[in-house]
Nucleic acid binder design. Structure first.
Length: 439
DNA sequence: TCTGGGGTCCTAGGACCC
DNA sequence: TCTGGGGTCCTAGGACCC
């Protein structure tokens, strides 16, 4: 990156300041430098399957399309092959020919992930399986084994926490780790610790991951993608111009397809392009908040901490029907699904120990347009019948003449059930619930 | 090839209160 | 009778992420 590519309007002193902000101190810093790691498991869902079916290694495999009960899978294999072929639940000898192919798939499933062999054909996560079947019909299609994914997820995270305790959960297959104060976390900019974590995870799970270590979460997240799979990338502040600025804006976590299209329309294609616009210009054309944030992001600035604990905000269940349903013609079916969704949300709340005050529904029509309605009630609840009653009232407030492809139920404004109970118990006898903040 | 399911956060308008 | 802002809550929609 040359001086000419810095903000053109910046005076030399400002340019120097911009560069110095990211310069690595020449002398040994008295305080440790902030080193944040982002760890991303490689093709996680597919890799978990390959643990059970190692015979599929190297083949194109696509994961997604539906749920699986492990018993069903066992039964399917048992029915097809004699017991001697898979002693003690060892599926490694089930012939490759046995597995279903993507060819001829009909349905509304999407790919959760794909092995690297399948990605060569252009198949990627979030892609409709019908499309994936066109690109790679010979790919093996396996449904997600959520129980196994959760088990392995808990396992690899516990391994990391033993080594570096400050870990932020980012879903089943991703975490941020604060290396800053971990013994050895500064060595080679974090590479030594990253290697150790990779090794320990592999020993415990047989799975590989990719790690990026950088001064903050924003850059670390981008860095973990640089060397996939099974890679490590170390990024220093002074690498901003050479490693980060050439990347498309889409690589910034928080810039999605909409924002990217808008940026492109202004001739901003790379992060460097964005960095060279004035903050004021970005704020004016992309919104005060987003523009200001993007300016910071394009200069590699991000001081968000690694957050180890967080409370859930809402819980929901939704389902897409095999065929679009009509509120009147498919009333019975729709009603049954609706009730089941309410029961599932209630069960989720109870199992996790929460109650909520805002009850809502979500509908997606056949044209993919979504609508939501919600209502806030007087008391916290985790009761299926209560949720069903208020969600039912919400349903009455939307257009039900159009065909529906998705129905969802959501409970928000959550509070820990124990706190709700405690407040209820200590409330003065005869007190109106509305006088208690928790009710 | 029509596009899953579970989330978080932001925006914006209106109600309501001081 | 008219005219303020500020603050907070509620609701709907949408962008984005894993």
């Amino acid at each position: 990156m040359t001086a000419a590519q810095l903000k053109p309007e910046a005076r030399p002193a400002e340019q120097a300041a911009q560069v110095l902000r990211y310069a690595r101190p020449v002398t040994t810093a008295p305080t440790p430098q902030r080193r944040i790691a982002h760890l991303d498991m490689d093709a996680f869902f597919a890799s978990v399957e390959l643990l059970r079916y190692p015979q599929l290694k190297g083949l194109p495999v696509v994961i997604g399309g539906g749920r699986r009960k492990d018993d069903d899978e066992m039964a399917r294999v048992r029915a097809a092959y004699p017991e001697r072929d898979w002693p003690d639940g060892d599926f490694s000898r089930v012939p490759v020919d046995f597995f279903p192919r993507l060819a001829g798939y009909t349905g509304r499933g999407v790919a959760t992930t794909a092995t690297y062999a399948a990605r060569q054909f252009g198949v990627g996560s979030a892609m409709g399986l019908m499309k994936a079947a066109k690109l790679c019909p010979q790919a093996i299609l396996l449904p997600v084994d959520f129980d196994e994914v959760r088990r392995v997820s808990r396992l690899f995270k516990s391994i990391i926490r033993e080594i570096a305790p400050v870990v932020e959960d980012r879903g089943v297959d991703e975490v941020f780790i604060d290396f800053t104060d971990v013994p050895g976390g500064q060595r080679e900019g974090g590479r030594v610790l990253a290697r150790l974590i990779q090794k320990c995870i592999f020993q415990a799970t047989g799975l590989t991951c990719s790690i990026g270590v950088a001064p903050n979460k924003l850059i670390a997240k981008m860095a973990s993608e640089f060397n996939k799979p099974n890679g490590i990338s170390i990024v220093w502040p002074e690498n901003l111009q050479t490693l980060i600025w050439p990347l498309p804006c889409r690589k910034i976590n928080g810039v999605g397809p909409k924002a990217d299209a808008k940026l492109q329309s202004h001739g901003i294609h790379t992060i460097g392009d964005a960095a060279q616009r004035e903050r004021e210009w970005l704020m004016e054309h992309l919104g005060r908040s987003f523009g200001s944030w993007l300016h910071e992001a394009s200069w590699g600035r991000d001081d968000r901490p690694v957050v180890t604990e967080s409370e859930p905000v809402s819980m929901s269940r939704e389902t897409t029907f095999d065929r679009d349903l009509h509120a009147v013609r498919d009333r019975t079916e729709l009603g049954a699904v609706f009730t089941r969704l309410c029961e599932q949300v209630a069960a989720d709340l109870q199992r996790k120990g929460y109650a909520g005050k805002t009850i809502g529904i979500k509908l997606r029509y056949d044209n993919f347009q979504s609508v939501t309605r919600d209502t806030t009630i007087e008391h916290f609840t985790a009761d299926a019948a209560t949720i069903r009653r208020h969600a039912g009232l919400c349903l009455k407030r939307v257009d039900l003449s159009r065909r529906i492809r998705l129905l969802g139920v959501r409970v928000g404004k959550l509070e820990e059930a124990a706190l709700v109970e405690a407040a209820r118990a200590t409330a003065p006898a005869g007190a109106q619930p509305t006088t208690q903040p928790l009710f």
